[in-house]
Amino acid sequence: MSSTDVSPSAAGLDIGSRRFLHPGPLRWLRCLGWAVLLFFVFGLTDAAGSIFPEKLFKAQGPLIALATLVICLAGFALYAGLVRLAEARWPSELALRPAATELAIGLAVGAAMLSVVVALLVASGLYEVTGPRASSPWNMISVGVVSGFMEELIFRAIVLRLLMRAFGIWPALALSAALFGALHLSNPNATPTAAIAIAVEAGLMLASFYLLTGRLWMSIGVHAAWNFTQGWIWGARVSGIPVKESLYLSAPRAGAPDWLSGGAFGPEASVPAMVVGTGVAVAVLYWAWKRGNFRAAA
């Protein structure tokens, strides 16, 4: 992984253009094949980060978060090596120099966004919040780490980037967001409405931060903090999954319409989340477009 800060410019986004992605016949098919292979490899890495620390290594407390982070960083190193071999480049999307700053910004933005969503749900009478109470944050930190690092690698650096190289920015945004939403249909209490909400408010929103910077760090921070804040701080269901421990406990009020509150899926399927997530997505996508990052570098 290069430590060079490769800043986006009017030349377009660096999404790979050599070796396996070189211009020529059937480039789109080569992009799709490479995307499918990487999706499979790092889908397994994502599963390892979710399962191994607790089930195989019996890690608890801080160790579960540390073990998860180590697996994710190993996955990033593997991705960098595969991209170097297949695309003849060190991935600028993993440039290390801006990582700390962009992660910190992303964490702050993600926590603020989810807290605004909960505040709107409470203010509109759709949710009630109780607590605080004693609890450990480590399991939810682990969830935030694996979802932030691995899902952003898979859906932004692999799916969005390679679809953009194959078909251009608009099909790439639409298809990657739709896939992100559709895969959440396997979650508990998922509905078509929830999948659409995830596609729009999260799929497009998280893509916008990658397109803005040309790197994953900010979208990783937003994704991780969104899930951690939702799960541990506010104790709401995370994409339909109930949390084990939380500082507060948040739930829809009796009689609150599911289409407004998100129902059993949690805040992510609520109208406030749609408004906040979509608003941020539109603003950041516009900013990325103004920076020239809706174009691929040659």
Rank of each mutant, 00 (worst) to 15 (best):
E93G: 08
V145Y: 09
Y127D: 00
L94M: 07
A134W: 13
R84I: 09
L66T: 11
A77L: 09
I64C: 14
P98V: 01
V122F: 05
G61L: 15
V146G: 07
I141T: 13
G148C: 13
A74L: 07
A77R: 08
A99Q: 06
I51L: 12
G148E: 14
V143F: 08
W90H: 13
L114G: 03
A111H: 11
Y127C: 00
M113P: 03
L107F: 10
A99F: 08
G110P: 07
G75H: 00
P132A: 13
A65G: 13
G125K: 02
L69F: 04
W90P: 01
L56Q: 13
V116H: 06
V109Q: 01
A108W: 04
V122C: 08
E128N: 01
V70Q: 10
W138T: 13
A95L: 12
A65R: 12
R89C: 05
V83W: 02
G81E: 05
A77K: 07
P98K: 06
A112V: 06
I51E: 10
L69N: 05
W90T: 12
A134R: 12
I141E: 10
R133A: 11
L103Y: 05
P53V: 09
P53H: 05
V143M: 12
S115G: 03
K55D: 14
M150P: 12
G110C: 06
I64S: 14
G125V: 00
L107A: 02
L63I: 15
L85C: 08
M150H: 08
S147A: 13
G61F: 14
R133C: 04
G110H: 07
T68L: 15
A99T: 02
P91C: 11
S50Q: 10
E128W: 00
V118M: 07
A111S: 07
V70C: 12
L73R: 09
V146F: 02
C72F: 00
F52D: 12
G148T: 11
L78Y: 00
L103V: 01
E87R: 01
A134E: 13
